[in-house]
Simulated scan of single mutants.
Amino acid sequence: MIDYLGRFSERIAGRFSGRKFTPIACSACFSDEGLRLDAEKTGIDVPRPCPNCTKTGFKKLSRDALELLTHRFFVWGSLQKVLFGAAPLIQFNEHQATSIDVAPWLANDVKLLERLLGIGFFYYGPRLWMIGEVEPLKALQKKGKQQSIIERILAEYPARILKPNDQFYRIRVNPSVPDDPQQYDSPPPQFAGHGRLDSAGNPILYGSSDLEVCVHECRVTAEDDIYVASLIPSRELRLLDLSALLKEEDGTEFESLDMSIHMLFLAGKHSYKIARAIADAARNAGFDGLIYPSYFSLLRLGQMPFQTVYGISHRRIPALQDHEQAKAIPNLALFGRPVQNGTVQVTCIDKLILSAVRYQFHFGPTGA
């Protein structure tokens, strides 16, 4: 899969470094409303007529911007999620003629993109690792094979030290006594087993250094009274870091432990049983908790999941691994009741007021 998003981010910077901006279309060129709105967001103001439709007063798009728009609408916009992983249903390139079914309101736009970019659209047959055919991940779903993979996780993922000056946050919604530090410890027993990593008898204090992620993780509403506690460890805590990108040199995505954990934490509630087994094993191995990637990492950063170049995951390409690592916003999961036992201190409690909510979105084709 061609990474038009990555190519655009590098090449569009040219317009800010003295390179001449050459428009080839504008937002008014499009009939589909979603595509037109996305073009308006992507384009820039240029005070001259559009070279394609001759209209003035609309955002202009260069070839780079048009490639980005096309990728975002047709490829990202056709992304199909499965139990583990996801893959786009539509792709495009310069070598194939268009063979997809197109809605009548989109037909003229497809012809325009074919002409301006010299491309064709086709249904994409992804490599099967993209939809969960990853051997360690499949083994984690089988009771008889799960333990051996968990042992690999404990051995291959790095340990990190959370130091006494490493502050993080915990959100509480409608606490009974907002200024009581104990209200910001792990949930009481009657609420055990509702989170990704906790289970009955194994409570977990969830937190993050990213306050916006905390707010989103707690599914707050405008009617809630929201409070945020600032916390620091009282001593060094040893955590298993599952947010790390493993730089595996051997094998492919099909054998990748890194891809297995990446997919596990981007999956929904059906993955919780596996994640809890990993947490239990880490607790038994003497860790104080876990660092794990937030389920909302990509949404928080506005990134497309499971990006590839010709079917190879960006996580496997050395030049892109730092960028991929930065997509994982780390959450904390501390075992037991660390506030009660003094392992963690609450240094401050504030009321949090939602003053505005903004949505960023883009569009995709229907029927994909």
Score class of each variant (00 low, 15 high):
207 G>S: 03
115 R>E: 15
269 K>T: 09
288 D>P: 03
267 A>L: 01
108 N>M: 10
136 P>E: 06
214 C>Y: 02
358 R>G: 11
356 A>L: 13
160 R>K: 12
151 E>H: 07
305 P>R: 02
142 K>N: 03
38 D>A: 09
219 R>V: 06
182 Q>H: 08
200 A>G: 05
150 I>F: 03
277 A>Y: 02
57 G>M: 03
162 L>V: 07
50 C>R: 06
57 G>P: 08
28 A>I: 05
269 K>A: 06
250 D>Q: 14
20 K>I: 10
201 G>S: 06
52 N>M: 13
60 K>G: 01
264 L>Y: 00
286 G>S: 09
155 A>P: 05
20 K>G: 01
320 L>W: 09
100 I>T: 09
225 D>T: 06
193 G>H: 15
230 S>H: 11
131 I>Q: 05
9 S>Q: 15
353 I>P: 00
23 P>M: 07
132 G>N: 02
270 H>N: 11
322 D>I: 07
180 D>P: 08
205 L>R: 12
55 K>A: 15
20 K>M: 11
193 G>C: 13
9 S>R: 15
83 L>V: 05
176 S>H: 12
95 H>R: 13
117 L>W: 14
131 I>W: 04
310 Y>Q: 14
343 T>K: 09
357 V>I: 14
21 F>I: 03
4 Y>G: 05
192 A>C: 08
197 L>S: 06
74 F>E: 02
179 D>I: 12
32 D>F: 07
82 V>A: 04
238 R>E: 04
208 S>T: 04
93 N>Y: 00
363 F>W: 13
152 R>Y: 05
127 R>V: 09
107 A>T: 07
139 A>K: 11
87 A>L: 00
165 N>K: 10
112 L>K: 15
94 E>M: 01
316 R>K: 15
335 F>L: 02
185 D>S: 08
278 I>E: 12
275 A>I: 05
263 M>S: 00
135 E>Q: 10
52 N>A: 10
108 N>R: 15
86 A>Q: 10
35 L>I: 03
211 L>P: 02
18 G>K: 03
279 A>Y: 09
30 F>K: 12
252 T>D: 12
45 D>A: 04
193 G>S: 14
43 G>Y: 10
333 A>I: 01
38 D>R: 07
347 T>N: 13
302 G>N: 12
205 L>V: 08
360 Q>T: 09
128 L>Y: 02
191 F>T: 06
10 E>T: 11
118 G>Y: 14
118 G>F: 14
234 S>N: 14
27 S>C: 04
156 E>R: 15
117 L>K: 13
356 A>F: 08
90 I>M: 00
3 D>N: 13
350 D>A: 11
279 A>Q: 13
111 K>G: 15
142 K>H: 11
82 V>Y: 02
110 V>D: 14
125 G>F: 01
109 D>T: 08
291 I>E: 08
8 F>G: 01
135 E>K: 10
6 G>E: 05
364 G>Q: 14
196 R>V: 03
331 N>D: 05
6 G>T: 12
203 P>N: 04
327 K>R: 11
38 D>W: 00
195 G>F: 13
211 L>W: 11
70 T>V: 07
214 C>F: 04
190 Q>E: 15
300 R>L: 10
16 F>K: 13
